[in-house]
């Protein structure tokens, strides 16, 4: 692979980054090729030592999304970070995706429970509309009590979600640092 092919492939694998950042990264590698060339090394040799541009691209993308997920805990950012870290290698597929799905289900279950409790009086009303004869005061009071409980659960879930998100992003970070290939297997 010559310089042009290397840079083209790297550029292609970085398409999700901003132009500015992409430019900055490519500049680093341009510089690397320039200096290598001035030392009399052929382009092929330089690009071979650099390794796969796709793998380098993946590492850069993972770092990018992790940074974003850390700055702002939005669902989109976290999904993208998880995806990017998983992309780094098969090992990550196992140790990231598994815990991620498990945690996501628990959090989701908590939220659904809380929200279902909160809207339970509404369900009683719907029930009354459909079967006017079946109305019992007990159902109404019980569902109002559930609403209170649901609000408490939702508030609790707010904290739990925030706590888990922070923890999980930290885990991702730790993970990306561990597995990002440093050395060749030899």
């Amino acid at each position: 692979m010559n310089r042009e092919q290397f840079l083209k492939q790297l550029n292609a694998s970085l398409k999700k980054l901003s132009d500015e950042e992409k430019e900055d990264i490519l500049q680093d590698f341009e510089e690397h090729f320039d200096i290598g060339k001035s030392e009399g090394k052929p382009e092929e040799e330089i690009s071979k030592s650099l390794g796969s541009p796709n793998q380098i691209g993946k590492e850069l993308i993972a770092t990018h999304y992790l940074g974003k997920a850390e700055d702002h805990y939005s669902a989109g950012n976290i999904f993208r970070a998880v995806w990017a870290v998983i992309g780094l290698g098969f090992f990550n597929l196992v140790i990231v995706l598994g815990p991620f799905i498990a945690i996501l289900s628990v959090v989701l279950a908590g939220w659904i429970t809380g929200l279902a409790f909160i809207i339970s009086p509404l369900l009683v009303l719907i029930n009354v509309v459909i079967y006017p004869g079946a109305f019992e005061l007990f159902d109404l009071f019980f569902s109002i009590a559930l609403t209170g409980l649901g609000i408490l659960i939702a508030i609790g879930m707010l904290y739990v979600t925030r706590f888990i998100t922070t923890g999980f992003v930290r885990y991702l970070n730790y993970n990306a640092k561990l597995v990002k290939g440093g050395l060749k297997h030899e």
């Binding site: 650099l50 390794g51 796969s52 793998q55 380098i56 850069l60 990002k180 050395l183």
Partner: peptide, 10 residues
């Protein structure tokens, strides 16, 4: 022996 390109992401 390293895959030299990974120094830049680092």
């Amino acid at each position: 022996t390293i895959s030299e390109g990974s120094v830049y992401p680092l």
